[in-house]
Design a protein around this nucleic acid. Sequence first.
DNA 1: TATTGTTATACTCTATAACTATA
DNA 2: TATAGTTATAGAGTATAACAATA
Lengths: 139, 139
Amino acid sequence: MRAREAWSLVLELLLAERRRVPAIAGALRLSAAQCHVLRHLEPGKPVPMRRVAEALACDASNVTGIVDRLEARGLLERRAAAHDRRVRVVVITRRGAAVRARLVARLAAPPPAIARLSPAEQRTLCAILRRALPPSRSG
Amino acid sequence: MRAREAWSLVLELLLAERRRVPAIAGALRLSAAQCHVLRHLEPGKPVPMRRVAEALACDASNVTGIVDRLEARGLLERRAAAHDRRVRVVVITRRGAAVRARLVARLAAPPPAIARLSPAEQRTLCAILRRALPPSRSG
DNA sequence: TATTGTTATACTCTATAACTATA
DNA sequence: TATAGTTATAGAGTATAACAATA
């Protein structure tokens, strides 16, 4: 059973890259949670607050403050939902989309650990990870 | 170049397992940062505060509070270092070591994504990740 | 009655700056 | 002068509980 060893190696990689998100976030004057929200908001696709809370995997009460701060910077907007007046949806603004694009680009840059692998190893890694991850997944 | 794709898949796995550490921490009534500290402290091996800060990759001023709370629960102790009276070292207690053992065991349990891979895939994954990770690494 | 979003509250992590005691 | 640890401070994330508006 190599599952434990494989997992411990993944954890190690995870630990090695632990500062990556905070560092990229900081360079864009964002927090990690704010990055998650921006990343989750595709331009032109409104998302209810409740869905944002699920994406962040945190209590809904926290989303109020996180969205407040993003809205104050003009990176997203709150709107009323037509079908249910209890619901408020969040939409990324043009300015927010520009920040999001930079964010996504920086996150996508592979770290040294991945870059140092040979093309063949990278292909194999892709194949295995595609098998490992559940089929239904959202960025 | 599959590096970007491989990295995006690793990020996805990372995202999928994002709640793992907080969840395990919470079950042991610890924060994520406190878990990192306990994990870093091998029984019988004192570590200077400064090294703890490096392990957490945060400013040294934060370590004071984190260690304070662990010390208040009797999970570790502060001691004076013999060679340099400015330095204080941290040592895990017997009680702390017991909590640490449970913590490490739970962290080590492979998640579904890894467990669903075949033994051959797991072996290959191990081999690739060992190549990816720098040789000098500490848990 | 149940759900959505908010507010109030309390705790922890985080960085920066200033301080002390050593070196 | 420089370093190790602390304190003070401010800002952000987190959970729980209570609340108003709506379903």
